[in-house]
Design a protein around this nucleic acid. Sequence first.
DNA 1: GTCTATACGCTGATAGAC
DNA 2: GTCTATCAGCGTATAGAC
Lengths: 208, 208
Amino acid sequence: MPYLKMQPVEMESVDCRIMTSALDLFVERGFHNVSVHDVQRRANVSIGSIYNHFGSKEGLAKSLYYHLVKEFEEMVEDIIDEDLSIRERCNQLIWQLLEYTETRRNIVAFMLHAKHREFLPDEPPVCSAAPFKAMRNIVQQGMATGEIRDGDPWVVASTVFGGAIRLIHLRLDGVINQPITLYYDELVDCTWLGISPTMDSVLREQAV
Amino acid sequence: MPYLKMQPVEMESVDCRIMTSALDLFVERGFHNVSVHDVQRRANVSIGSIYNHFGSKEGLAKSLYYHLVKEFEEMVEDIIDEDLSIRERCNQLIWQLLEYTETRRNIVAFMLHAKHREFLPDEPPVCSAAPFKAMRNIVQQGMATGEIRDGDPWVVASTVFGGAIRLIHLRLDGVINQPITLYYDELVDCTWLGISPTMDSVLREQAV
DNA sequence: GTCTATACGCTGATAGAC
DNA sequence: GTCTATCAGCGTATAGAC
């Protein structure tokens, strides 16, 4: 059952069936452990069809990759377009990342887990793609407005999203067995307030 | 030039040359884009030799993997054996991770970046290997002694090390162009105190 | 545009001399 | 234990009918 967001066109296009099958197989076994025959079989099309549509196995992977980056980018854009504080934006992003991991596991797995350089040698790394740049942008805005601690953009951005991404990896690897959306509140607390318990006491004292 | 830590034995053993060559090639091109012939050529041995020592390409990868996990584990054990507070232990670990990334790039890349499941299907994910368990253990101890904010172990551990691991990935991907050891101090601050600037002000106010 | 049958290169692995 | 020569199978890609 294809579940990729498709452009206006028909939902059941051959392209979509092929890409969906490819995505699932690539995530299950890894790009190099999937033959074009495998994709062909799962998508219920002929090999000729695949080569007609995508030119090569690499071409198929590339199309799929672009498609997913775009979908991801739109998600980020949607959040940016909402009228939110920087902090709320970051949290919203973290939430969506966790939620995507649960509801569209393979998309996240392909974006975050797959080592594209191995089969798309000319592609820059994912983290330099548009959506990731947008994420870092948000962080920098936050530093400018004073909503986020000032410092090196890389360090701060890594701290903001590093915890979430780490949780996602653990979940994808099957080390964590429950939906990570359950961890959202606690994760956000840890990230913004830090893991040092002294800060807690400071706050508590203040509250008293 | 082989740079793997070798057991007591001679530093220039054939095993070591083969494993070092394999490590470099695997990291450069990915396991599946490296043929046994490639390894053989770089290590200046014959194919027969490789099959004699390791039985198969997968056997070579497995030996290499075990070797590196062990080396990593020893690093963690060394830190645990030192007489340090939990917090210092965590920081020491973070430092070592950053430093390893700079001085033994390929080892870290192979451990953190490589998707072992693709070529070692029966291997559990890296993050469930001994050294990672030890890292989570330290965090749990910290929660027990009150040195670390109490909470779900996964979330807290991900927050403690997530930032560092994220930085390492960015560095390995070539997105960050300077040694990440430079970021150590700031990273540790962000992690323990959180990225919320309000905490800073709280502290500052307190200090006044 | 879709299909089947086929070609051809590469790579993991072995045999057997030294 | 080390080497070279060789095999067998798989997997990408194409040719050509429909």
